[in-house]
Design a protein around this nucleic acid. Structure first.
Lengths: 103, 103
DNA sequence: TAAGCGTATAACTACTTAGTTATTATAGTC
DNA sequence: GACTATAATAACTAAGTAGTTATACGCTTA
């Protein structure tokens, strides 16, 4: 794995390292949402969510489509959910091992 | 996925979001290494590498074993490599799509 | 115990960035 | 055209952190 590729991978991980962004992605998993709608769903403000959406769009994780007055965002790269699942399973597995020690 | 679990997943991603840490993990994939050894391998300083190792150990990604004077670190959670592979494939796939557009 | 080696920590600087508030831009509506 | 709604940007603050330098800690050996 080249140094350059490592940088790209690190950047992808960085985008996914913010809880609010994972929440947003989770919301978008069920279908596209407008910015304000999404802001309400994750209990944040419109400008903040807008900024995070920009970051995820630049990373190719999310895609943008304007319809009239509102802008709909949706998942552009569904592989992120496989990533999350992998991490979840790893965390669960580690927890199970720890419990076994105290078993 | 609960808010708490999302936080844990985000934390895991955050640990993996530093290029030097990915480099270190890549080095450790071939076998355990001492701190100074690892610092040389990734062209960094001993204190810096030591700090990153601490972070990865706290995250359960790396494990520590002291033998005499030197401390050997090794991979504690090999699932991180599957994560990196997934990201790599996703990046490659996206790049292929972009090329197709200009094809 | 003294010296040398490998590792960890402390203190610091510089940089990045999440969130807020205010404002601007754009599209639809009366 | 004036008004409203939705989204994006600008400017700012606060917090976190990577890297450096200096120092302390622990183990080994003479």
């Amino acid at each position: 794995m080249s140094e350059e590729l490592i940088g790209l991978v690190a950047t992808r991980f960085k985008v996914l390292s913010e809880p609010i962004r994972l929440q947003m992605l989770q919301q978008l998993e069920t279908g596209r949402l407008g910015v304000t709608e999404l802001a309400n769903a994750v209990s944040s403000t419109q400008p903040n969510v807008s900024k995070h959406l920009r970051i995820m769009q630049d990373a190719g994780i999310v895609s943008r489509k304007q319809e009239g007055n509102t802008v709909y965002y949706s998942i552009a790269d569904p592989s992120i959910f496989a990533l999350c699942d992998l991490v979840c399973n790893s965390l669960k597995s580690n927890l199970a091992k720890q419990n076994a020690v105290f078993g």
